[in-house]
């Protein structure tokens, strides 16, 4: 057990009548880039805050790097880096001042741990005298990450680091996490974006305070065994309505310009679908059999829960 970076047993947390975590069991091996994926209000922040010793659990146990989150919170706080959901650095301090402050809080210096943050910090270093409040979203994230890393943590908790960040910066951010993992830091990251799941080593899907599945992205895709179709037509809204009312339909989700569709019959139904749609006066019909993505799997998993 002590070898695990994170272990929780039947962890519960409630806020008044709202049950944020309903008995979460989780095991995260060290050195993993572990993703917690779920919609807003699923319990991601509660879970991360509990693990980061900022919130007391109501029931169950949790340990980080072998330390209990309640009794030994001090040991954990020394070894972890934490980045809360919203930008929480001092907006009226400059980039450099923020970094220096956090270095001193952890009794270290920028020079001492520069190697850790070098790749990330170099990108914002040209703006080091700019006030943190005037940085762009992506730059703020980089600064916050630098500040969370400056004391060489063994584990990193990132609560929705890419929410509200532009797609280019999001990609860069995930590349940075990949690099940090190579340096031996365990990383727990939460995100509402399902497409980011494939970038993690392991992913836990969380909904309504319950973990639905824990798996590697590849295993998740493998476990999806129904044929999946991407369907497109000129009138997308009508198409969605018609497919939902189709008597053989199993699941229908809009997915970008396509609609992802599964059929109850389990056979190759491309031709049948085309005929059915033509009969319903659709034009520009396109039906393709496709391989599922992680997102499809999650949609299916979450659909089962409801």
């Amino acid at each position: 057990m002590t070898n695990l970076a994170i272990k929780t047993e039947n962890l519960t947390k409630r806020y008044g009548s709202l049950e944020a975590l309903k008995g979460v069991d989780l095991e995260v091996p060290p050195g993993f880039l572990f993703g917690i994926i779920g919609p807003d209000g699923a319990g991601k922040t509660s879970l991360i805050r509990t693990l980061a010793t900022l919130v007391l659990p109501d029931g169950g146990r949790a340990s980080v790097l072998g330390h209990d989150v309640v009794a030994e919170y001090r040991s954990i706080r020394n070894k972890m880096g934490y980045m809360p959901g919203r930008f929480s650095l001092y907006q009226d301090l400059s980039v450099l001042e923020n970094l220096q402050l956090f270095a001193s809080i952890y009794d270290t210096t920028i020079e001492k741990n520069y190697h850790l943050i070098k790749d990330i910090y170099q990108q914002i270093e040209p703006f080091k005298h700019r006030r943190a409040g005037q940085l762009s979203g992506g730059m703020k994230q980089k600064l916050a990450l630098s500040c969370a890393l400056i004391h060489e943590p063994e584990i990193l908790f990132l609560d929705e680091p890419t929410t509200g960040v532009d797609p280019v910066s999001r990609n860069e951010f995930w590349e940075m996490l990949e690099d940090l993992k190579k340096k031996g830091i365990s990383i727990l990251v939460s995100t509402p974006y399902m497409d980011e799941a494939k970038l993690c080593d392991m992913v836990a899907l969380i909904q309504n305070g319950t973990i639905l599945s824990v798996n590697t992205p590849a295993e998740i895709v493998d476990s999806y065994n129904t044929p999946l179709y991407a369907i497109k037509a000129t009138n997308k809204y009508q198409l969605l309505k018609d497919l939902k009312s189709y008597s053989y339909a199993a699941s229908v989700f809009p997915f970008g310009e396509y609609i992802h569709y599964t059929d109850q019959r389990g056979l190759n139904v491309v031709e049948e679908l085309k005929k059915h749609l033509e009969a319903n006066n659709h034009s520009g019909i396109e039906v393709v059999s496709i391989a599922p993505t992680v997102e499809d799997c999650f949609m299916a998993l979450m659909d089962e829960q409801v």
Binding site: L54, R74, Y82, I105, Y106
Partner: peptide
């Protein structure tokens, strides 16, 4: 929140 998460 960040300060609390620190050993300070």
């Amino acid at each position: 929140e960040v300060l609390l998460a620190s050993p300070m």
